[in-house]
Amino acid sequence: MPRLVVDVMLKPEILDPQGQAVQRALERLGFDRVASVRQGKRFEIELAEPGSVDGAAELGRDMAAKLLANTVIEDFTVRVEDDAG
């Protein structure tokens, strides 16, 4: 069955205070090469029916635009993983 992976990130121009907090925590732990951190969301969606990869990608974009992302403040990418093979 194909699986959709949808990554949602705040747009670059939107302040990400959570990412900044993670960055400061990493620095406190001694990771001194961290230049910046942005935090996002990843959705893994198993599809119930077999179908074309193209159709699955279209479905994923539809889900992301309607619910998974708020396109006022977030960008998304969709990819289809087919583990049937």
Partner: peptide, 9 residues
């Protein structure tokens, strides 16, 4: 527009 996390968390 949208409402997002407070800048000071």
């Amino acid at each position: 527009g949208a409402l997002t996390r407070n800048n000071h968390l």
